[in-house]
Design a protein around this nucleic acid. Structure first.
Lengths: 163, 163
DNA sequence: CCTCAATAGTTGATGAAGTCAATTGTTTAG
DNA sequence: CTAAACAATTGACTTCATCAACTATTGAGG
């Protein structure tokens, strides 16, 4: 049957081993080890992203949009692409945000099909508070040593550069 | 306009309104710098989590549940708590997953109110494939140097230990 | 024992967020 | 100038989320 209670241990048979942190598994590439750990921390933190967004009375997606829209006006299709979702989804999303006075649709002059999204003044103000809040490190990061933080920062910079 | 991918030395001292910080006012605290960058990478990656889950015909939440359920049987309320969502939400979620043969409700014997969730055999199999897929590092991580990866892994271990 | 509060799960109503298919305007290419 | 391509919207539908109300069970005290 299922025999779930000790997952990692029952999978001790041949073939590809479980990626979870079994010690002595030296065959795992370093990148996989590092990524798995990073992913774990990531997910632990993403669990309370909805709650964090709710502090600003935003849905998670809206928070994401507010954050992204600060870089400048964006066509709706570009936003859809950025969110990896269907364009039709963005329509309703923006409807609600516009109704709340956070964003504004304004027609492009080069191409009358597209509508550019810009943050309203209220939207910009909200975004600043949001970014400030998002930048607060969680306990697991804040408690790292200074050299670790320094190294982490530099590594992240290098990682992001290659995107 | 603040662009966080800017170079390392422009740690602005007076750029934005000072956060209500326990830290002293100087440059942005190191933990904040590191966290902000980490957060950026995190979000860049979370964008395609839905697509990744879809590879297994799972919704993002279902993928999360499959992943979590591997640790052992879980009461529905515990899962609700873990997902930071209402218990009533879990009912429908589990309904759909049960209909797909991934999980099974089984009544607890200590307390006839609670129902324990366990992965079915198919659920376990799916979970293994999913974990394998999740462990594949994205390009930004895979392209890091070996010392960086090593340092990152060790730092993440220390960070996760403090949770 | 019996009542009463607390807990676990479900149901129903509702809304946000996602999909797809079809539609309306507006470029742009042949 | 027609025809294909594209941007945004609409409508039908699913999933995820909330809240309020309900059932059943457990666990205290009186």
């Amino acid at each position: 049957m299922w025999v779930m209670s000790s997952s990692s241990e029952d999978v001790e048979r041949r073939g590809r081993p479980q990626p979870s942190g079994a010690e002595g598994e030296q065959a795992e590439p370093l990148s996989k080890q590092a990524w798995t750990l990073l992913f774990e921390l990531m997910h632990a933190h993403m669990r309370n992203f909805p709650a964090l967004a709710a502090e600003f009375e935003l849905s998670p997606v809206q928070a994401h949009v507010v954050r992204q829209l600060g870089e400048g006006p964006l066509a709706m299709s570009t936003l859809a692409n950025y969110l990896s979702c269907d364009a039709s989804n963005v329509t309703g999303l923006v409807d609600r945000m516009e109704a709340r006075g956070l964003v504004e649709r304004r027609g492009s002059e080069q191409d009358r099909r597209v509508k550019m999204l810009v943050l309203t003044e209220a939207g910009v103000a909200l975004r600043e508070r949001l970014l400030e809040r998002l930048a607060e490190p969680p306990e697991s990061i804040a408690s790292l040593s200074e050299p670790d933080l320094c190294a982490l920062r530099d590594i992240m910079r290098r990682a992001l550069k290659s995107q």
